[in-house]
């Protein structure tokens, strides 16, 4: 199992190297292979935890694909609302930090949720509390303070997918 992770990490890193250099020169390939092998050997344990088989479950990849348009839609809406707030002459912002409980358990899932929240303008994850299993999110336009409401409004669009992508 661990060997599989090492190999996958090596291939991904090598492909990234080749794509970034953008040349078909064999020297580039050789240097890329050396660097990718070194980085993979150092970091594969961090990148690939658990078995390899479940990484290739088609269902998880299906949800990952379905996540893309849902994410882009949320991103578009968030941009429109923040641009409205910026351009409005009186700037009707109502900022505050709220607690957003999450059902996600895995490290990757929580990271993905925190990143998605930060990447959509208008919400910004400030802190993660593991014992409360919740995120503290700075919200530019606080619409609700109760944990159920914040969870539905802030994490809702992403959590549905992330729960099934990262088990």
């Amino acid at each position: 199992m661990a060997k599989g992770g090492l190999f996958t990490a090596f291939v991904c890193l090598w492909l990234a190297w080749i794509a970034l250099t953008g040349s078909l020169n064999p020297q580039e390939f050789a240097v890329g292979a050396i660097v990718a092998a070194f980085v993979a050997a150092v970091s594969y344990e961090l990148l690939f935890r658990g078995g390899m088989r479940e990484k290739f479950e088609p269902k998880r990849w299906g949800y990952a694909l379905a996540y893309v348009p849902a994410y882009l839609w949320a991103e578009l809406k968030a941009h429109a609302s923040v641009i409205y707030l910026i351009l409005h002459p009186r700037m009707p912002i109502k900022p505050g930090i709220v607690r957003v409980p999450t059902e996600l358990q895995s490290d990757f899932g929580i990271t993905g949720l925190a990143n998605a929240i930060t990447m959509t303008p208008g919400t910004l994850s400030v802190d993660v509390s593991e014992e409360e299993s919740s995120l503290y999110v700075h919200w530019i336009d606080v619409k609700a303070v109760e944990p159920e409401q914040t969870s539905r409004q802030i994490a809702g669009p992403f959590e549905r997918f992330l729960r099934r992508i990262f088990k």
Binding site: M119, T120, P121, V126
Partner: peptide, 18 residues
């Protein structure tokens, strides 16, 4: 325009993503 660090980070996200 925005008043504090946290609000300015929201605007920064608009610059980077949008």
């Amino acid at each position: 325009r925005f008043p504090d660090v946290y609000n300015r980070i929201h605007a920064q996200t608009v610059v980077v993503v949008g």
